[in-house]
Structure formats: C-alpha cells, structure tokens
C-alpha cells in the first residue's frame, strides 16, 4: 500500500493505493488516525484501492468512530466498485460517509 496526503485548511485528503489487508492495516492507521486526532476532516480517496478485506473495513469503521469522537468526519471518496461491494456486504453503506 502506498499513500499520498494533501492538506488544505482543515481538510486532509488521503489517497490510498493498492490492496488493504491485515498486513497493511497498521500502516493505514498510522497514516489516517493522526489527522483525525488533530480534528481534521479527512477525505479518504479509495479510487486506487482495488481490494479491501475485513481488516481494511475495520480501519474504515475505526476511523469513522474516532472522527465522531473528535466532532469531525471521514468522507470516503471515489470508492472502487470492488471495495464498495465489500462495504455493502458489511452493510456499512448507510453508516460510513460515502461520496
């Protein structure tokens, strides 16, 4: 997994790239969580993530919940069809902020 972060005011846009599985979840958390903890609105662009397993979904849930605690939000943007399918299988499309 690789990533790119850009910041514009209070918005941190994080582009993840590659496959998100158990092997990279700690790295994904290290990239995402500090921005949430800093109170930023995080835009998580998943257009280049073609595979995500339950560990990756857990990162999305944890990010969403952390953001609520910090009175901010995580918006998941441009989710690929294959990842959307997994999000829907987990019945999270109404819980997570998808755009």
């Amino acid at each position: 997994m690789s990533y790119k972060v850009t910041e514009d005011g209070n918005i941190a846009t994080i582009h993840l790239d590659g496959e998100i599985d158990m092997d990279v979840t700690e790295k994904a958390k290290e990239v995402i969580f500090p921005h949430i903890e800093a109170g930023k609105e995080v835009h998580l662009n998943l257009s280049n993530v073609q595979y995500m397993d339950s560990s990756g979904i857990s990162v999305l849930i944890e990010s969403h919940q952390k953001a609520l605690e910090k009175n901010t939000k995580v918006i998941i943007k441009d989710v690929s069809k294959s990842v959307l399918k997994v999000i829907m299988m987990a019945k999270l499309e109404q819980i997570l902020n998808l755009e």
């Binding site: 339950s54 560990s55 990162v59 919940q65 987990a90 019945k91």
Partner: peptide
C-alpha cells in the same frame, strides 16, 4: 452481530455470506 457496528468480527461473516 452485523448491526453492532464496531471494528473486527467481519471476516467470518464474509466467509459465511
């Protein structure tokens, strides 16, 4: 429980689905 949204516990659900 799938409605109890929290990290973890989804892998077995996916397999069974």
């Amino acid at each position: 429980e799938i409605d109890n949204v929290k990290p973890g516990g989804l892998g077995t659900f996916f397999i069974q689905e």
